[in-house]
Amino acid sequence: MSVQLVWNNNQEVVEITEELIGTLEKLLEKAAEMEKITDGEVALTFVTDQEIHELNKEYRGIDRPTDVLSFAMNESIDEELDIIYDLGENEAIDLPEILGDIIISVETAIAQSKEYGHSIDREIGFLFVHGFLHLLGYDHQDEASEAEMMGKQEKVLAEVGLSR
């Protein structure tokens, strides 16, 4: 078992290459390994500033675009729904736990990559790991929790070769 990445592209600003998806899969593998997550699924969607603005306003009450949003699926699915039976074979199929959704605005990622002086792939990778850690309950409301989260993000990015 492993943590799987399922992705969608709802924007046409940046081409989402197989190489980028491969890098994100490696980042997910490293971050999951670091957090001792052995099974699950993460849904990633690439969007425009307009779409993330609407989501940010609707779900967080903040009327502006942002770089990344995470929606954790903390509730466990009832055990009856955890297993689907194949009627032909009557064998149980285990479903991966859905960890949650990560939404990344590529327009904001482009602007931030220019501001910080690194590649768009590095910025998207950073936002993806940041979003993944949020799915697991990490936050950055104070200096200590921010330092912990930033340290974990940088470690994962460095292991995949996306250091600053």
Score class of each variant (00 low, 15 high):
Gln153Thr: 09
Thr17Ile: 03
Gly88Phe: 12
Thr66Asn: 09
Ser70Glu: 08
Asp82Met: 11
Asp67Met: 13
Gly22Arg: 03
Lys152Ser: 07
Leu136Tyr: 06
Glu19Gly: 04
Asn74His: 13
Val160His: 01
Ile110His: 09
Ala31Ile: 01
Glu143Lys: 10
Leu135Gly: 03
His134Leu: 07
Arg122Val: 07
Asn10Asp: 15
Ala111His: 06
Leu69His: 10
Leu127Thr: 02
Leu44Ile: 04
Tyr116Leu: 11
Ile110Ser: 05
Leu55Lys: 07
Ile102Trp: 06
Met150Asn: 13
Glu12His: 10
Leu127Lys: 04
Ile83Cys: 09
Asn90Gln: 15
Glu148Met: 08
His134Asn: 07
Glu154Lys: 11
Glu159Ala: 09
Met1Tyr: 15
Glu54Tyr: 01
Asp101Gly: 14
Trp7Arg: 10
Ile98Pro: 10
Glu12Ser: 13
Phe126His: 13
Gln112Cys: 09
Ala72Arg: 14
Glu148Tyr: 04
Ile120Ser: 02
Gly131Glu: 00
Asn9Cys: 12
Glu25Arg: 07
Val106His: 04
Val160Arg: 07
Arg164Glu: 10
Gly137Leu: 07
Lys30Tyr: 08
Ser145His: 04
Ser119Leu: 06
Ala109Phe: 02
Ala31Ser: 11
Glu35Trp: 04
Val13Cys: 08
Arg64Ala: 13
Met149Lys: 10
Ile84Ala: 14
Asp86His: 12
Lys30Leu: 12
Arg60Gly: 01
Glu146Asn: 11
Val14Ser: 11
Ala43Trp: 09
Ile110Tyr: 08
Gln50Tyr: 07
Ser76Ile: 12
Gln153Lys: 10
Leu99Pro: 00
Leu133Trp: 05
Val156Gln: 04
Ile84Tyr: 13
Val47Asn: 00
Arg64Ile: 06
Asp78Val: 13
Leu99Gly: 02
Val6Leu: 15
Ile84Glu: 14
Tyr138Asp: 08
Ile21Asn: 05
Phe132Asn: 01
Leu28Thr: 00
Pro65Gln: 07
Gly40Thr: 03
Glu107Cys: 07
His134Glu: 06
Ile16Ser: 01
Ile104Val: 14
Ile37Arg: 12
Glu91Asp: 14
His140Ile: 08
Leu133Pro: 00
Phe132Arg: 06
Thr108Asp: 08
Ile110Gly: 05
Gly151Cys: 08
Ala32Gly: 07
